[in-house]
Design a protein around this nucleic acid. Structure first.
Length: 445
RNA sequence: UCCUGGAUAGCUCAACGGCAGAGCAACCGGCUGUUAACCGGUAGGUUGCAGGUUCGAAUCCUGCUCCAGGAGCCA
């Protein structure tokens, strides 16, 4: 009985007889010689069925079976430069072949398909090499996130997904029936993080978040995964230092572990490899100046009006892209107008119209991947802010109470996993960065 | 919610007022090194839905449905 192996480990079995269990990915034939590309979840290997080297009925099976048939095969591993696959360079000379389930006509062929069709068949699309590579990179991004935080003194403290009131504001929340009273799906774990940081110092939560926004762009999901670290005694500058190291680690891990996958999906590695700390840091004031300067020297009136910005308004997507394009590195933009940001952000000393907030914009037009700030820790100030923006203090009772029992300066940020993966993989659309994207028009599969 | 574009064979598309077609997939046959194999053959259609104009509509008009991209909002 031959050893059952994973394709990823095939190089260790050269010259040995092995068993493989997997699915037929593709087949090309030439009469008495059939090339079966088989995948097993860890990789793809070319298996060669040659009529003279195997039982007659097994060869007939090799000739007949369609794409995605599940199978069990045995054969000799040999090195061959011509053999395609992942990792490639090895192939298996089949001596025995058994079908587990012969597939019906498989909808996803090896030609191009439209977005609508692929999304309807997402449960099958995840098998395609490109999607397979992207989702493996996603898993590594998530692991790098967890490892870096765990290794730097942050404790994972989970925050609830169901809650009785809004996190930051009451719009774009999914409301559900919670035994007769309204409840909402979390759009952030941040308020709970602030309670947890006072217990554990440095904490983070990681999980799905929900935004009921009718957004229809390549950067938006209704359900997306966010990691949110929150740190006691952190200033805005500490926050930027941490984010910088954190993002660098994630990129290094992906480059180290997934070079073949990145090449497989056609990612230009140059811009990614050249990412290095320190990242640029500019103030909102400077960003507005730079945008208006750029608009001034732009001839195209349409683009000009997209770039022009009045101080005090938040950046639109064209602004973010334009700022990011001014740098080869990710760029921090800090001290946004207080009016544009959440109520709990700490105003700048002596200049309350701006706050101690910072967004990190990814290069190559990928926009905002993190957003964070120093939080208000003074009770009176926070109460005043709640009153100013007109939300019900009753909903923030426990949150306010954190400021009664040892309030300290603290800061935190949130990073969108899917946007980060989209940037690292160089993808045109965020829908490929999550196994089953929830979007305005996609709830199935 | 708004703006723009689209819907034709299982898939990707062509035909743009005059016989609805190709490639891939499927099926049959050939081929000992294929890389989206190739070669020959077969089958495959309520042209998104409803109405209108016309001798004649996939094509022009009206309404609707669905999809995509973008804006706003955000990570």
């Amino acid at each position: 009985m031959a050893t059952t192996i994973s394709i990823a480990d095939i190089a260790n079995y050269e010259g040995q007889e092995v068993t493989l269990q997997g699915w037929l990915y593709n087949k090309t034939g030439k009469g008495k010689l059939q090339f079966l590309k088989v995948r097993d979840g860890t990789g793809i290997v070319q298996c060669v069925a040659f009529k003279k080297e195997m039982p007659e009925e097994a060869f007939e099976v090799a000739r007949r079976i369609p794409q995605e048939t599940s199978l069990l095969l045995t054969g000799m591993v040999r090195k061959d430069e011509r053999a395609p696959g992942f990792p490639g360079g090895y192939e298996i000379g089949i001596t025995q072949l058994d079908v587990i389930q012969e597939a019906e006509e498989y909808p996803i062929g090896h030609k191009e398909h439209g977005v609508e069709f692929l999304m309807e068949n997402r449960h099958l699309w995840v098998r395609s090499p490109r999607q397979w590579a992207i989702l493996r990179i996603r898993a590594t991004v998530i692991r790098a996130v967890r490892d870096w935080l765990d290794d730097h003194g942050y404790l994972l403290v989970d925050t609830p997904i169901l809650s009785s009131s809004a996190g930051e504001n009451s719009t774009d929340l999914f409301e559900i029936d919670y035994f007769g009273q309204p409840a909402y799906l979390a759009q952030t774990g941040q308020l709970y993080n602030e309670a947890n940081m006072a217990a554990f110092g440095k904490v983070y939560c990681f999980g799905p978040t929900f935004r009921a926004e009718r957004s229809k762009t390549r950067r938006h999901l209704i359900e997306f995964w966010m990691v949110e670290p929150e740190m006691a005694f952190f200033s805005l500058e500490d926050l930027m230092d941490a984010e910088e190291a954190f993002v660098m680690y994630i990129i290094q891990q992906v480059l180290e572990k997934h070079r073949p996958e990145l090449e497989m999906i056609g990612r230009d590695l140059g811009p990614l490899e050249s990412i290095a700390a320190p990242f640029a840091r500019i103030s909102y004031d400077e960003a507005v100046e730079r945008l208006n300067a750029l608009a001034a020297e732009t001839d195209d009136p349409e683009r000009k009006s997209l770039l022009e910005i009045e101080w005090g308004t938040d950046f639109g997507s064209p602004h973010e892209t334009a700022i990011a394009e001014m740098f080869d590195q990710p760029v921090f933009v800090y001290h946004y107008p207080t009016a544009c940001k959440a109520f709990y952000m700490q105003p700048v000393e002596g200049r309350p119209e701006v706050c101690r907030s910072v967004d990190l914009l990814a290069p190559e037009g990928y926009g905002e991947i993190t957003g964070g700030s120093e939080r208000i820790f003074d009770l009176d100030l926070l109460q005043r802010r709640i009153q100013e923006i007109g939300i019900d203090p009753e909903n923030y009772k426990w949150y306010l109470e954190l400021r009664r029992f040892g309030g300290v300066p603290h800061a935190g940020f949130g990073m969108g996993i899917e946007r980060t993966v989209a940037w690292i993989c160089g993808l045109p659309h965020i829908r490929e960065t999550i196994p089953y994207a929830r979007m305005l028009t996609h709830l199935t599969p």
